[in-house]
Simulated scan of single mutants.
Amino acid sequence: MSYPRYHINVFWSAEDACWIADVPDLRPCSAHGDTPDEAISNIRDAVTGWLATAQEQGFDIPEPRYRPAIYAAKFAA
């Protein structure tokens, strides 16, 4: 299944003792892994499942919109 290019956050969770991958545009859509690469691999599966379920249920598929604050900043001229 092809899907839009969503932003993926990847971070270490000390509380869970694993890497977390999260897609802000697809709430709730997250996955975990022992390494960042494993978390990213797992989130790809989670996104595919999220989108397939939304489509089966007739829900709208959100366009990718999330941008981290660092990219959203506007610079004064």
Rank of each mutant, 00 (worst) to 15 (best):
E56G: 07
E38I: 10
G33M: 02
A54M: 06
S30T: 10
T48W: 10
I43W: 06
F75D: 08
Q55N: 11
D37H: 08
A21V: 01
F59D: 15
A76Y: 08
N42V: 03
P64F: 00
V10F: 00
D25F: 00
W50F: 15
V10W: 00
S2D: 12
I20P: 02
I43V: 15
N9R: 13
T35C: 02
D16T: 03
P68M: 12
C18Y: 05
G58N: 04
R27G: 08
A72I: 07
A73F: 11
M1C: 08
R65K: 13
C18N: 09
E63G: 06
L51I: 15
Q57L: 15
E63Y: 05
P36S: 02
Y71C: 11
D45K: 09
T48V: 13
E63H: 09
R65T: 14
A21W: 01
E63W: 07
C18V: 06
F59E: 15
A76W: 07
F59L: 15
L26V: 05
K74N: 11
I20T: 03
H7F: 14
D25E: 03
E38A: 14
T35S: 08
Q57M: 13
L51N: 05
F59K: 15
N42C: 02
N42A: 05
P36E: 01
S13L: 01
I8T: 13
E15D: 11
F59I: 08
P62K: 04
V23C: 05
A17Y: 10
G58R: 06
I8K: 07
G33C: 04
S2M: 07
R5W: 04
A69W: 09
A39R: 04
P62N: 03
W50D: 10
D16F: 03
A14T: 10
Y66Q: 00
G58A: 04
P62G: 04
A73P: 06
C29I: 03
D37V: 06
A69T: 12
R27H: 12
A76G: 08
I70V: 14
I61K: 06
L51C: 11
P4R: 05
N9D: 14
D60R: 14
P64K: 01
A14W: 01
Y3R: 08
D45T: 12
A14L: 07
F75S: 11
A21I: 03
V23W: 02
A54C: 09
D37E: 14
S13Y: 00
I43Y: 04
S30Y: 14
W19M: 02
Y66F: 09
